[in-house]
């Protein structure tokens, strides 16, 4: 076989290797967004499928911005978006407050304990998300474990209504997304040169000053990555507000789900999704940038 033919042959398999996943993602990841955008501009009808086609029988475009103007005028949606952002933010900060000292402690543990502690952070990832949320139902119930223990200890004489409150949602969010916070924080803290903290102390910084002058600014990439990894999925969360939150806890993921399955208003659900996506585009791009920078830093 001549070298030229050999090279062409080599290029062919490279092309195939790229093309298969590329086409798959174009069809099953990118195209759906075009469709969602299209349907968000349609009117709902009682039919199968329940929306007007993009082109009518004359071939004219039948786009309408009704869904978006409805989203903007109906106060319920604005409030829901804002509340989702707020709750996701609070959950993110709670994760950070709990996750940072944990990641710090793990990064500074000796090596064999460190691996075990890390494993215990990762392990819940592998156990069903749904069942982990479910576990809290048994704890937070009016007749659940926490109330039983508190009453047995005579701290309270009536059960506290934990379930179906925002508190329960926060517990669920922090519980589910804590590992997403701890892992990137751990990665940056573990890489950090401990000499730097000692150098700061040697130059006259008390331990708390050394933390804020050196450890915290150097951990920033991990803090940013962790916060985004918690905030983004928390924004669209459906299971946690459904199972732990009350019927009033209208978070946007749940509204989208209900709009689609309960009201069967596909165009409006699509519009809700598009607006949610617009809110999340900035943090998502930010996250991808920081991860790309991180990957370069390693190379």
């Amino acid at each position: 076989m001549s070298t030229a033919a050999g090279l062409r042959h080599d290029l062919l398999w490279q092309k195939v290797t790229i093309a298969i996943p590329y086409v798959w993602l174009l069809v099953y990841f990118l195209a759906p967004f075009a469709i969602i955008l299209k349907i968000s501009l349609a009117d709902p009808v009682i039919a199968q499928p329940p929306f007007t086609p993009f082109f009518d029988s004359q071939g004219d475009i039948t786009a309408t911005s009704d869904n978006y103007s409805f989203l903007l005028t109906d106060k319920l949606y604005a409030v829901t978006y804002l509340k989702s952002v707020f709750m996701a933010l609070v959950a993110t900060l709670l994760c950070l407050a709990l996750g940072f000292p944990m990641a710090y402690g793990i990064a500074r543990a000796d090596e064999s304990t460190r691996n075990l502690l890390l494993l215990l952070i990762v392990l819940p990832f592998w156990i069903s998300f749904l069942l982990r949320v479910y576990a809290w139902m048994g704890l937070l119930n009016n007749y659940g474990v926490i109330n039983n223990v508190l009453m047995w200890l005579n701290v309270i004489d009536k059960p506290i209504a934990f379930m179906y409150t925002d508190f329960a949602i926060y517990v669920g969010l922090v519980y589910s997304y804590l590992p997403f916070m701890v892992l990137p924080l751990y990665a940056t803290l573990e890489r950090m040169d401990l000499d730097l903290v000692e150098a700061a102390q040697d130059l006259g910084a008390r331990p708390s000053q050394a933390f804020w002058d050196v450890t915290w600014p150097l951990a920033r990439p991990g803090v940013i990555a962790g916060c985004l990894l918690v905030f983004i999925p928390a924004m669209g969360e459906y299971v946690i507000p459904y199972l732990l939150g009350g019927p009033e806890s209208l978070l946007i993921g749940r509204v989208l789900f209900d709009e689609f399955f309960v009201n069967r208003d596909w165009p409006l659900a699509s519009a809700v999704a598009i607006v949610l996506l617009l809110i999340l585009v900035v943090p998502i791009v930010f996250l991808q940038r920081s991860q790309a920078r991180d990957a370069e830093g390693h190379a």
Binding site: I18, L25, G253, L256, S270, L277, L280
Partner: peptide
Amino acid sequence: FSGMITSPMVMPEVITGLSLLLL
């Protein structure tokens, strides 16, 4: 390509699910 690789991981599930169903 690399954008499409990393995006599905951070996309909220409700959006991925809805968009695939509509597809």
